[in-house]
Design a protein around this nucleic acid. Structure first.
Lengths: 234, 234
DNA sequence: GCAAAAGTGTTGCTAATACACCCATGC
DNA sequence: GCATGGGTGTATTAGCAACACTTTTGC
């Protein structure tokens, strides 16, 4: 437990970012949106060539959430709409040869932002339920992030972060259905959202649909705040 | 972000441990149990003389939860009944002069164990709602741990960890009342616990009371498991 | 018997669900 | 008009809180 010992533990920050994409894997007619996430191909050992979560070592003069945002921007070009700490992973055997503790964040990006993201040889989007074998313990990490997202979706109001600035109730419902994996009654969903007081009617409507034009809503971010307890917002 | 930069971030593990104690601050007749926690006096700068959470630097060859358990034993002599990661704190200004990231755990100890704990010049128990100004950001950390404990008490079954091996329903209810801060209906509390299937009737009863002897229960730890998602148990 | 807490039964309220039905638009 | 999803109303039900009531012990 002397200084030499202490300095030999590396500290990194990684992020699991989710976005919603209209899944066209099964051809045209479905077009049900599902959860996707961007991964980065490792260009050095260990696990060279494998896909991994975006991240990197923590800089000495940046906060933890700042490091998550920075590495996310560096590798994928994404700026998340929602960001929250997930867990610190520090098992002895999670990285061969070296000891690394990873503080992992999870994030949501809007559909507009996700479309803008960098995609290249070393960055690719994967369906969250069809991941290959990832580097380190990153499969477990994604699994845990998915569990937290699904949990939080039920009692919190974060679904809007996967959409654009304004959205219809049907779009918001689609997000819930995609994440929670089951159909929801439109009528009851509407009432649940209205009673939460977190939606603001923009006064506008989405036109061009082959049916009655739905209202467009905006999220009221002055309401919740008190969702992560006494912790200051990142 | 070179190696020099990276090595200058220290990594420590601390723990917030809660125990229930019969509060005799207000004289005899109340004897309502309340939450207490042990703190350690700092014997060097920074914050020399102030009270702080038990903890220490992470050893290169121990897991995070192991480090929490070890430092807890080293300083207070306590072995927790329940242990869970709370949060990683890494703000730039949380420690003057040096940069330290603390991975904080929170824990529960049984009433029997708490009575056995080391108490001395540099270790003392404090009522959770009457803390002095602590070292670093430890006041915030305790506040957050309290929030998590109160939250988890409502949907999880961890209350038994604050008691002994066997307990009566009244004792279990007292734990809930102490943590959640309000009286609970004995009849409804009984049904809620019975329907959770986590209690096992030991067949024995607590005798020596000035009234009908209550049944003694034991906790069935084969049930829950699936409370922290896909994470392996620490 | 009496006090006190253990333990049981019953009622009423609230909130989530299921589903019937009307509304407004594009074609 | 007709099809389609937007949006409203309402009956049913499950779970929970409140509280009356019976049981079993020590004194």
């Amino acid at each position: 437990m002397d200084n030499t010992d202490r300095a030999s533990v590396g500290l990194a920050v990684s992020t699991v970012i989710f976005a919603l994409r209209s899944d066209d894997r099964f051809g045209a007619e479905g077009a049900v949106p599902t959860l996707w996430l961007p991964l980065v191909r490792r260009i050095r050992e260990p696990f060279e060539g494998r896909w991994a979560l975006p991240g990197g070592p923590l800089g000495a003069s940046e906060g933890l959430a700042d490091a998550a945002r920075r590495t996310l921007g560096d590798t994928t070009g994404l700026a998340p709409r929602y960001l929250e700490q997930l867990y610190a992973f520090g098992d002895l055997d999670r990285s061969p040869a070296s000891r690394v503790v990873s503080i992992v964040y999870w994030a949501l990006v809007g559909s507009d932002e996700a479309a803008r993201a960098t995609v290249g040889q070393n960055v690719r989007w994967f369906a969250a339920d069809e991941l290959p074998a990832l580097a380190f313990d990153h499969n477990l990490i994604v699994e845990y992030a998915l569990w937290r997202l699904r949990n939080k979706m039920e009692y919190s109001r974060i679904a809007h972060a996967l959409l654009g600035e304004t959205f219809t109730l049907a779009q918001l419902r689609e997000v819930h259905e995609a994440v929670r994996g089951k159909r929801l009654d439109p009528a009851n969903f509407r009432r649940a959202m209205e009673s939460s007081d977190s939606l603001v009617d923009t006064g506008e409507r989405l036109t061009g649909t082959p049916h009655r034009p739905p209202k467009l809503y905006r999220y009221d971010d002055s309401v919740d705040l008190a969702d992560n307890g006494p912790l200051p917002r990142s």
